[in-house]
Write a protein that binds this DNA or RNA. Structure first.
Lengths: 128, 128
DNA sequence: TCCATCTAGATGCAAGTTACACATAGCTGC
DNA sequence: GCAGCTATGTGTAACTTGCATCTAGATGGA
């Protein structure tokens, strides 16, 4: 019998992948392969390695990181990434977003105390 | 002069949008238009309303929510959404992901203490 | 009655993003 | 040489998103 339900298995992409990569680069240079391993080790949902490489290139195009080839170690050359000032700014701005997101998720799962200042709008029509 | 830098303006989509919607539905029924307003009021980056509606339908297809038409109020009919057991499970599983993500972002921005148990791997090769 | 406006939901399409498979290339050990 | 590991990438189909646009009920004004 064919499985009909579309999967919604957790995956890391979009802003969450981009910002995780930027965060790992804060204070350290790193290369793609290494960053992919760190993501896996950090308990985040897996990302395809191709997606990681393409995301890094896209971050470079938008000025969040810069890169250079590192041939100082033995083995295949590594494209080392460095966080730019713009990337750092974007990252710190994203922290606010994360805080609000966090509030929503945790509010939902622990008896969710209604936030004292959110009372008086049309949302009072919520059913049951 | 044409702007050449690709935009990376924050937008809410993917897992973050889905889980925010699920969280808002915990304990309450709500309809799409209302949820879109809640997202905006919650200090999260904007989402296109079309995207919100489509995301809700997709959550329904994957069994995270169920819906019914509500014609009890005046005005256009509303498609009311209810969180399912599967949606609740997915949501609580996602909390762990969020916690790890949070750790990474905050670790990056506050002097980032090296986590005591993460020392002994190849990541020691990180350059300056 | 006609029209504008607001609420509510939805879709067509172009552009962008992703997963999966595969390709390339340097190095190590046999 | 060649298998296996490290490291970076690409082709392609499928999926997702933003924007514009559409339908439709209700309301209020001219």
């Amino acid at each position: 019998m064919p499985d009909d339900t579309p999967e919604l298995k957790p995956r890391l992409h979009g802003e969450m992948l981009s910002t995780s990569l930027l965060a790992f680069l804060k204070g350290w240079n790193a290369y793609g392969y290494q960053l992919a391993q760190k993501l896996a080790a950090a308990g985040l949902p897996e990302s395809d390695s191709g997606t990681v490489y393409r995301t890094l290139r896209q971050l470079e195009k938008s000025g969040m990181v810069s890169s250079f080839w590192d041939t100082s170690e033995s083995g295949p050359a590594r494209r080392m990434y460095t966080l730019t000032k713009a990337g750092e700014l974007f990252l710190s701005g994203w922290i606010d977003v994360l805080q609000n997101y966090q509030k929503i998720l945790h509010g939902a799962l622990e008896g969710f105390l209604p936030p004292a200042d959110d009372a008086g709008d049309t949302s009072a029509t919520a059913a049951r």
